[in-house]
Design a protein around this nucleic acid. Sequence first.
DNA 1: GCAAGGTC
Length: 688
Amino acid sequence: MRILCVAEKPSIAKAVAEHLSGGRSETRNTRNKYIKNYVFDYDFGGQPWGNCQVTMTSVLGHITAVEFPSEYKDWRHPPPERLFDAPVNTVIADDKKDIAKNIETQARYSQGLCIWTDCDREGEHIGHEIREAARKGNAALTVKRARFSNIERAHILQAARNLIMLDDRQVNAVATRIELDLRVGYALTRFLSNNLKGLGGPLANLVISYGSCQFPTLGFVVDRYFRVKNFKPETFWSIKVKHKKDGIDVNFSWARNRLFDRASVIILYERCLAAKTAVVTKVQEKPTKKWKPLPLTTVELQKMSTRFLRMTGQQAMTAAESLYNKGFISYPRTETDRFDKGMNLRALVQKQGQDNRWGAFAQNLMDGGFQQPRDGRHDDKAHPPIHPITYAAPSAALNENEKKIYEFVVRRFLACCSEDAKGVATDIDIQYGEESFHAHGIIVLERNYLDVYVYEKWTGTAELPKFTLGERFEPREAMMTEGKTAAPSYLTEADLIALMDANGIGTDATMAEHIQKIQDRDYVRTVPRSGRQGGEDDDAENSDEAPAGRGGRGGRGSRGGARGRGGRAAPQARGGVMEFIPTRLGVALIEGFDRMNFETSLGKPFLRKEMELKMKAICDGQTTKQVVLHESISQYRRVYNQSQENLHVLKAVRAHFYHDLLLLLYNIRETDFLFKACRQYIFDNAAG
DNA sequence: GCAAGGTC
């Protein structure tokens, strides 16, 4: 009996062949240079197959693509809206023909097909593509699927003996997404481009694209832009108390933080001064920790790279993929932030012992310092967290970015296998007049993981002098301060990735591409962050400790993320960090779509979420591909028709193209608004 | 010339 096994990528085929054959497989080349066929014998244990001759091979992700028939090639005829119900053909992509042929040929000699694609939705669909390719060679194949979530030997052997069926619901859910993205993306892109091209100017040769991921990504940038632009600074007042004891300066921060009413602060401040002395009301010392990081996911890798390694998300992914292909690190596209308990992490730590930068640290872990990594809450059931596989010496043939990423992956991994940093936190409260003030200090006792994970610091760690409960003293200095709340800052790439992640926009493998796309389309541009202080990027997630050394600062804002001008201790990544600002085109697109339709605001992440929910409903059997396609297409068609109906009005108005664009999009929701906009436009121009 | 998703 012959069985054909097919994995989603060459690395899985190779690893599975190793395990099933016990390292005794024969390797054969195929017409595709990345793909090998591994031939060996294996006993599946009788369900449904027993002792078999196996050929194990792989694809490279999807092998099919969807496309419209050639008569829909022209952008104007037939008109774009016809793409909503035009036929859609599934074809083998040109660069995958050899791969499909290999499967077809191998299937001809086989009685069974076993699919070893990743156990996620896309993997299920790729499994379906493989099944169709194989059936071309042999329609009578018995088809099975292996369920596995990592490539540990025992786990793979277990999977091979417990084969399951391909899940057609998941296949259909993905097929729905594929078809909808194609129809809506093409139709709206052609529509927007066609109609804006006629307006001449800079739009003449531009493609104005719409996509279910690129648009919400743009939406995040525009949203933040307006929050910055519309920000109104507010003046606040506060009271700072300083004291010096045992040669140590102590800053006490006001329990009220700050008030936006000057007169009140003056009164409270004068009461403090009148009291002359302050009394210590609380002295507390307690052990504290700074937690080591979680195992590394793709999203986290990209965020950290843009923050600390001076790379874009896409550069980080390119480098990580290269490191993976050279065998230095594990698969770089993963959502999993917990290591499988069966993994031999110590062996991986040991391989780093020879390095002169972190070798001593690794050695120390081997000598008893090793701790099991923390478990995060995410598991994609397909890949482990990103970790080093083999040691790469500094002299290894890696480019600069690859070296930086490798170093980061190793340091992160060693940090995960290390111990939390430990310290003692001191809290001192004083009563001064009727007001309370607070000082907080931290002494680091054991740096532990911080020694290897150089990207994090436990800063603001000030030692406080000894105070005793009930102690009275006359503060050396008490002053009233004035400050202004600062605007939030524009989005950084790390912020953008975090937003996409939280809203389910794109996947770990595609987020960086969407960010690149909205730049290529000139919807947004990046500029170096100016020296301006303030901002609300989220370093807070790195601080498990209570915020230290706050005393005497303007204080953190609570109003819409506003923050005192004093800012915070500057993190390493200051300078060189880029922020995202929308172009006028980008603003116009989102502004327009936001006003367009409340149920279908294309500029919001809402629709993508809805798609996600519908896919889930298909997987759960609550709805079907046909129903979802029908619903969604009518929804998009309404949006499309509304805009088209008003096009003639738009074209009658000779305006600056950005105004035209706004009008075009504004009017989609309601003609009423269009008239208002036109009137406003004419008024504006009459004035000018 | 258009989408988003795999992967190399």
